[in-house]
Design a protein around this nucleic acid. Structure first.
Lengths: 112, 112
DNA sequence: ACGATGATTAACGCACATGTTAAATATTAA
DNA sequence: TTAATATTTAACATGTGCGTTAATCATCGT
């Protein structure tokens, strides 16, 4: 699966989207996220695995406690998402051209 | 499901993403899309239903032939997607603030 | 009217994703 | 060492998504 595909898939799940929104306020531990999102720790663990695989979040050590790890947002995939969106939205920058293309394509079929 | 959820879900599928990319060049009929994407007409029909439900595309009449309908991109959902992305990416605009928040949160636990 | 064309719906199978509980792993603290 | 805490993995049930083929529906052309 492509990077972009992984990103969209990760963000298609509402729980994972809420996790991302929570992480905007700063890194959080897995347990904190599970509690905040009202899902069981195993479920949260799997969501975090998906988010990590997509690169949207990364695991970082947190303080001296070797148990303590936090998850934080990574910028890259969001940038890639934005670039894709920019490309698609460029469509409307040349809507007239697209219309003309369509008119040409349907020439002879009685296009409106 | 939320509008944003429908949008992400729709774009999580590679075939539907390719359909959107194709439609950047202008409206296309269902059969043309099916052929271009190498999927069966029924599969294409279902993908188009999902895309329509998300508002990413709309069905329009095409010419005088009452059979002929084309699918074209709609701007709205892409804009909503962009707004969500803007909000999330605002995270990096105040990264220092987020770091301070985290340091505060872990105060007394020996944060790095 | 009749056959051809384009598209959707129906029915089915398969794979994958999500959630749960219980067990395992790792690390800290007493 | 032993108990407690944080997280992940295992095992399982459930639901949903995607693809196919066959059938149905609508419309055009002869």
């Amino acid at each position: 699966m492509s990077d972009l595909g992984r990103t969209f898939t990760a963000l298609a799940d509402p729980t994972r989207r809420r996790a991302v929104e929570l992480l905007r306020a700063g890194p959080r531990r897995a347990g904190e996220l599970a509690a905040a999102l009202a899902v069981s720790p195993p479920a949260m663990s799997r969501h975090l695995r998906v988010l990590r695989a997509s690169g949207l979040v990364e695991e970082r050590p947190d303080g001296d406690d070797a148990r303590a790890r936090v998850y934080g947002l990574r910028r890259g995939p969001f940038g890639e998402l934005r670039r894709w969106l920019d490309e698609v939205e460029a469509f409307w920058a040349c809507e007239l051209a697209a219309f003309k293309e369509h008119a040409e394509r349907t020439r002879g079929r009685g296009g409106r």
